[in-house]
């Protein structure tokens, strides 16, 4: 075990001592600053206080109701409108006005999807390089002739890559909070409203944010694992990075094209967004959280098995 910690230390050293680590940090913090700056510059200087917000929400809800009857066949739209109607109703009932302006926490929330996508790309780069680049540089030879199994080496590379994304999430949380606070004020912002199983709940923003992160991390872990498998198969980091990012970005387009088929619910990409079960915006009603978790688990085990075989069972000719 002490040996395995040493391996993790080694892989960490190889991740953070590279120049790319500094670039990752700069992009992460730079993007947050840029986002906050754009929002700040585009915000109206004197936001109009909407005193009739309850009426506006009421109006919105009747529109949504109409949309609901028109969109009978589409689970995704149905669920979206239902959740919005419920949250609007909750605001009216409990006298919680929607924010007219960006607040610290709405900034944190708005930054989450794009920043987690960025972190996913970083981690895909890290894991693909960690697994494949040593074959290109030839360092894999001196790495593999130690009294350590290839399984342990692969595991240390995988674990340290996931630790890297965890560190990125912590940096994201701290800096989006800090930058959000500096730009939009540390005070303000009411409770977070979430719609789960047909009911609206008030939760703390910190919890809601981390719940968001962790649910998005499921997609991140699946894509990072896939990148690792491709890197182990082709021993080519660039190919693994390109292919995985292409699949990640293109998955929505591909899914839209094949959404009418029933077997789509078994496709990896359909099941990766677990947020849909927590924000009431489920894309297909013939799926559930349990279903998605089982599908993901099957894919995950297949990925791990394939990656392990590709990495440990082949000759090293580098």
């Amino acid at each position: 075990m002490a040996n395995f910690l040493g391996l993790i230390q080694n892989e960490n050293m190889k991740i953070y001592r590279r120049n790319s680590a500094k670039v990752f940090a700069a992009i992460l913090i730079g993007l947050l600053l840029l986002g906050a700056l754009i929002v700040k510059l585009n915000a109206p200087e004197h936001p109009t206080q909407d005193t009739h917000w309850k009426q506006s929400l009421q109006q919105q809800n009747t529109q949504y109701q109409q949309a609901l009857t028109q969109m009978k066949d589409n689970d995704s739209y149905q669920n979206y409108y239902k959740s919005q109607i419920a949250i609007n109703q909750y605001r009216i009932d409990h006298n919680i006005a929607p924010d007219r302006q960006m607040t610290l926490w709405s900034f944190v929330e708005n930054a989450t999807p794009i920043m987690i996508l960025v972190i996913s790309i970083f981690t895909i780069i890290v894991v693909a390089n960690s697994i494949a680049s040593e074959f290109n540089t030839g360092t894999v030879k001196l790495l593999m002739i130690r009294p350590i199994s290839r399984t342990e080496i692969l595991l240390s590379k995988y674990v340290s890559s996931l630790l890297f994304s965890l560190l990125c999430l912590v940096v994201l949380f701290l800096f989006s909070w800090l930058i959000g606070g500096l730009f939009f004020g540390f005070s303000g912002g009411e409770a977070h409203l979430s719609y789960i199983n047909g009911a609206v709940h008030e939760t703390s923003w910190v919890l809601a944010t981390w719940q968001n992160y962790l649910l998005d991390a499921v997609k991140l872990i699946m894509m990072v694992t896939l990148a690792g498998v491709i890197a182990a198969l082709f021993r080519n980091g660039g190919l693994a990075i390109g292919l995985t990012i292409f699949l990640m970005m293109g998955s929505n387009t591909i899914l839209a094209l094949i959404s009418q088929y029933d077997w789509v619910k078994y496709v990896l990409f359909t099941n990766m967004d677990l947020n849909q079960y927590f924000n009431g915006q489920q894309t297909r009603n013939d799926m559930s959280l349990g279903f998605s978790l089982i599908v993901l688990a099957v894919y995950y085990v297949v990925f791990l098995g394939a990656g392990w075989l590709f990495y440990t069972k082949r000759d090293i000719k580098a």
Binding site: N3, N10, K14, R17, R18, T137, G138, L142, R146
Partner: peptide
């Protein structure tokens, strides 16, 4: 062993390279 060329991690110092291999035994 050295197998063919002694390829080391170029972005690390010589010492860090040795620490890297030392941790494995």
């Amino acid at each position: 062993a050295i197998v063919e060329n002694p390829e080391m991690y170029k972005f690390l110092t010589g010492y860090q390279n040795l620490v890297h291999y030392a941790r494995m035994i």
